[in-house]
Amino acid sequence: MGASVMLEALEGIRATLWPRAFKRFTGAMLLLPAVALVLVLVAGLAWMGDASLHLLDTETFETGADYTAANYRQMGGQATYWIVLGRSILGAAIVTLVTLVLAFPYAYVMVRTGSAWTRKILLVSLFLPFFIGQVVRAYGWLIILGKEGLLNSLFGILGLGPFKMIYNYPSVLFGLVQYLLPFAVLLIAPAVTAIDEEIELASESLGAHWLRTFRHVTLPMAKPGLVAAALVVFTLALTDYAMPVILGGGTNDFIANAVYDAFFRISDSGLGSAVAIVLVLIATLLAAVILTVLGSGTLGFSAERR
């Protein structure tokens, strides 16, 4: 009774604030926060685009008023940026490949296992790293893989080592794979769930052993999830900052580190913006290539789901 009176009152307020005639705008209103967020991002990008076109005067530490492409020229002319760029793209590609190869069986077993316990354990080990955070995890690897770390002390007991396992390119990639694996699993799992187990049984009964079933049925049907995972993992790896800093030992920078250095270490926001803009363009371009070649996956832009 009281509740219904209250509901009616609330409905009255709603009717005054948002008359029925506005109803067709309700959908648009719900989109507003997302649109606002995107607009802020676009504004930030526009600001950076503008900043990238002004040159810093190191005598006064003021940026010039004139528009110039000098920052881009400077960047293009410096081998460091090309090396760092190449390292980031190659690294992101390797990380994507390895992550997908590891994530797929994980997601598959998590979805298909008949044991509730196995599923729970897999889920918990998947979500736990999310609560820990990237930087802490990276430091964890320092403790485990360092010269006097856990692994080397175990090797020591066996009379081996110590081995240098951190502060190099492979350790950065390793850290990235470990960091991005949960993202990939979470994006692939729904795609595996969508594959009726009967379809795999059908393939077997039609004469395909498990490997061919995997290749001809499971993999093509899971493609949407794999594409989504590849896209997310690739862009996150390409733009990562923390892993190269913490596990790279200072000599394995990615582009984001170059952006940071320009902004904060040499206080050159123009050059930093130019590097950042180039990074955004390359990431967008590569994402577009992935989408064009492989389709949009579960991130779906097309209305027709195949």
Binding site: E198, I199, A202, M221, R306
Partner: peptide
């Protein structure tokens, strides 16, 4: 050498 027609047909949608 057994052909099977499944409950949910299990046709390959791709």
């Amino acid at each position: 050498a057994i052909g099977m027609v499944f409950q949910r047909l299990a046709l390959f949608p791709h």
